[in-house]
């Protein structure tokens, strides 16, 4: 089996992988209000993935879907972090990053591209939020069993997914402008992003199953 076939499978698996945590989420815990942003993120992300597949099959330019996915990712993940820990500084940076993302998306993203600069910037912001959340958790919480604490799983899943996506987004920009072998580089970038997405979905699903009991008596507000 050559690389193109394997990468095809990975990308295809990634496009449907969000269905797994969505299914478990619905089955176990969709009623839990403190995790609503994770659920909204997953369901919107999956819906947009389906849209991209559909428009791709129709032969249309579907890069606008990826721009939208980036925006949804930025808003829903940021709002999840803000629902955990909200400060004026975080809100300010959140608003700033959205504005910059929209400007980059509208003015500096060539037609047919995925707004790689905007996505890289927003991903870097989300990675910072994720690391800051770990730091905050370490500093303020003393009696939490991490393995039974769902926000820990969510944060870990996001951190791994975002760190893989960051380089994929960053190199997509490079690929469009400076590299002769554009299609090969884009494929590598996208495989990396897809692998990160699959890992994210697996971690979220495991977290949901492991934390099932804690949802029953869920009153945490961390």
């Amino acid at each position: 089996m050559d690389f193109f076939t394997i990468s095809g499978y990975i990308v295809r698996a990634s496009e449907y992988s969000d269905c797994l945590p969505i299914g478990i989420f619905i089955f176990f815990s969709f009623r839990i209000p403190q995790y609503k942003w994770v659920f909204i993120y997953l369901i919107t992300f999956q819906a947009l993935h389906f849209t991209s597949i559909y428009t791709g099959i129709q032969g249309e330019n579907n890069m606008w879907v990826y721009k939208l996915i980036g925006l949804v990712e930025l808003i829903s993940i940021s709002l999840w972090y803000l629902s955990r820990r909200s400060t004026t500084t975080l809100k300010f940076f959140f608003a700033l990053v959205i504005i910059v993302y929209l400007i980059l998306s509208y003015y500096f993203s060539p037609a047919g591209s995925i707004n790689s600069l905007g996505l890289s910037l927003s991903t870097l912001f989300l990675i910072s939020l994720s690391l800051a959340y770990f730091f905050w958790l370490y500093e303020t919480k003393e009696n939490v069993d991490l393995l039974l604490f769902f926000p820990f799983w969510v944060n870990s899943a996001f951190l791994i997914y975002l760190s893989s996506s960051f380089f994929a987004y960053l190199f997509s920009y490079e690929a469009l402008f400076n590299t002769p072998d554009v299609s090969n580089l884009l494929r590598y970038s996208w495989v990396l992003h897809s692998m990160g997405n699959i890992v994210k979905c697996v971690i979220l699903s495991v977290g949901l199953i492991v934390c099932k009991k804690s949802f029953a008596a869920s009153s945490d507000s961390v």
Partner: peptide
């Protein structure tokens, strides 16, 4: 080193680094 190899190395290293960070955090 080709750009494709670089992206795989950097991307994988980034993911591993974050995974290790999580383990250290735990």
């Amino acid at each position: 080193m080709s750009d494709s190899a670089l992206i795989v190395i950097l991307g994988t290293a980034g993911m591993l680094l974050m995974a290790v960070s999580i383990v250290i955090f735990v």
